[in-house]
Nucleic acid binder design. Structure first.
Lengths: 252, 252
DNA sequence: GATCATAGTCGTCTGCCTGACGATAAACAC
DNA sequence: GTGTTTATCGTCAGGCAGACGACTATGATC
């Protein structure tokens, strides 16, 4: 078939972001309140249109910076920076997912350490970190007893997919360190795993495993007592991205 | 921001397919020859535009059927059919990936058992199964000594990503059975793993492992000697999709 | 300052899984 | 029958994981 611009329908292409962090022992996601229809007043994932001259990853990094101030971690710079991990998640293109027009959304997953309260265009009441359990429960009641409206569009599905990706990916990669500050202790890393998986892990076996996995952690020499108790060694993320052997999620 | 159709640039959205199969002990992908510019005469992955009323998965299933005659496996029908496994792979949206216009391609991965020769619009010379090693080598020479042109667009990258997805996914899921006919032997399944990973596996340990993994294989009661040698039990894929314990790819 | 609570770190033991590999079984080709 | 091919069962040693005991080093409390 020859090139015919009328042969294909036009689409709008957006990026949506699943930004995850661990706060107060709970896996939380960034949610923004919609200011206009459709789904006005409902919570949604942050996102926006891809610009004409922009790559998908660039668009996601730009949206992430606009919403959180985080720089995306540049894979070309393996040195430890405090940029967030950013990767493509999946693409959602149901013809009816946006009632206004045909929109294809390329969802991205970002993992960030605990951050100060978010800002969305300077208005704090329109953006918040919410526990993913709360955002995903359908028609339930939040921690404060108020009824919880489900996320706008198909964002509940996108969030669920992003959470599952994070849960499985920290098993066989060193991604869990993306939830930690530059320097962290073994116990802090363990609490990340516990929050993301929603399980309790044995501190002794966890310590043996992560310190015994080559390339996962490198000691900085310092110690801290910020968690209380006996001083703990501080580590930075090692160069390894794939863990061998992997961290296995406990069954059931 | 209010709704303003001029606020976003229009995109064309396509689906591209990485269709993999195992033929003659080699992992092969479906390639089609381009009939028009750009990249006229070069090999490319099959694909096409997403229609206005079509979901992304529907578009991928339609293209798969057009190119191979395969039905996509419907996840809602867990019963064994001989449809191919189809899943979304990743989305590619570099602004310059198509010189004609801004095209975002949602790549999908399909796994199929060995098939009769492909047809592309009835013309066999314009579609073929090619070993992925051959399609991915840059500027080398094919089995017949002819120089090999790289795939059109960014399809080499897409193919490489699809192959890596398949290689890693058969580790922890029962997806390798998607490369087999409905009934197959342990040896045939082992040759699938060997072809996809490009390694030799110990037949005895492999047999112990797959028959010991609950839900992976269910015996049909029949036997076959189509591989020569002692008759082998026939199996069908069991209901398990996640393997526990996983099949581990040998190191290096 | 003694005691307690908290968290971190090191060891031990047992069972399971894995890789290496010997041995046997059942077909076909000659 | 002999040889070849493939399938299948067994054995053994090493490694890793879960369960859990023991000890250490800090801050909090009395």
């Amino acid at each position: 078939m020859p090139y015919d611009p009328s042969a294909f329908p036009p689409f709008a292409v957006t990026v949506d972001l699943v930004v995850l962090t661990v706060r107060r022992h709970a896996l939380c996601a960034l949610a923004v309140r919609r200011g206009e229809p459709p789904f006005q007043g409902r919570w949604a994932l942050p996102g926006g249109f891809v610009r004409a001259d922009e790559d998908l990853a660039q668009a996601a990094a730009r949206e992430l910076a606009e919403e959180t101030g985080l720089r995306a971690h540049d894979p070309a710079v393996p040195a430890q920076d405090n940029g967030a991990h950013l990767e493509q998640l999946a693409t959602y293109g149901d013809p009816k997912r946006d009632p206004r027009m045909r929109v294809v959304s390329v969802a991205h997953l970002a993992l960030a350490p605990d951050l100060p309260a978010p800002r969305a265009g300077g208005d704090a009441s329109n953006a918040r970190w919410a526990p993913v359990d709360e955002l995903l429960q359908q028609g339930g009641y939040g921690r404060d007893g108020e009824p919880v409206a489900p996320l706008a569009f198909d964002h509940a599905q996108i969030l669920a997919d992003g959470v599952e990706r994070a849960r499985s990916k920290i098993e066989y990669s060193s991604l869990a360190t993306a939830f930690c500050p530059t320097e962290f202790t073994v116990g802090e890393l363990r609490r990340v795993y516990e929050a993301v998986w929603g399980v309790a892990l044995d501190p002794r076996n966890f310590h043996r495993k992560v310190t015994g996995t080559p390339g996962f952690l490198v000691p900085t020499g310092g110690t801290t007592t910020r968690q209380g108790g006996r001083p703990a060694q501080l580590f930075r993320a090692g160069g390894a991205t794939l863990l061998n052997p992997p961290m296995l999620r406990p069954e059931v």
